[in-house]
Amino acid sequence: MIEKTGVPSLEQVKQEFPDKVVLKKPKAIIECYKEIPCNPCHTSCPFDAIFIPEDINVRPKIDFDKCTGCGICVYNCPGLAIMVTQIKEGKILMKIPYEFTPLPKVDQTVNVVNRAGEKISEGIVRKVQLSEKQNKTALIHIELDEKYAYEAITIEVLHGS
């Protein structure tokens, strides 16, 4: 139970995903399961795809038609509760927020973990984005097998050698 462990159930996770057909294009998946006074996802999205009303405690609501998968909300969310996911030719391509050093390198193989922190698969780093405006939260693009779409959440922290 998420209130006890920090791990959402598979049903909870699936509810935040659109239909798989929609994921042919990259879309933001928001896992912000409880009302908190917070709204940068809403204010940072340049396409008005995420909505939070005047009462900022209301949970964010996404309009997948408007979301372009740009990833701006991903590095603006202080809860690191958003990722962008796309399904393409049997693979998923995720953009995840990452705030550790060293950063992984492009083409590097990394361990992908689930929401309980357990390793589920290996993935390949396709891109590492860290511009000035990202304010120290990097976006890592990871590719892995489609079957992990609802499980994969981040990568194991890399340690400096």
Partner: peptide, 23 residues
């Protein structure tokens, strides 16, 4: 306590990095 006190997004963020949260 019975449940996590802080924001769940913060809890999930450390749980996925392997911190065993026990209530």
């Amino acid at each position: 306590a019975d449940t996590i006190g802080g924001y769940l997004v913060h809890a999930s963020k450390i749980r996925r990095l392997g911190v065993d949260i026990r209530t």
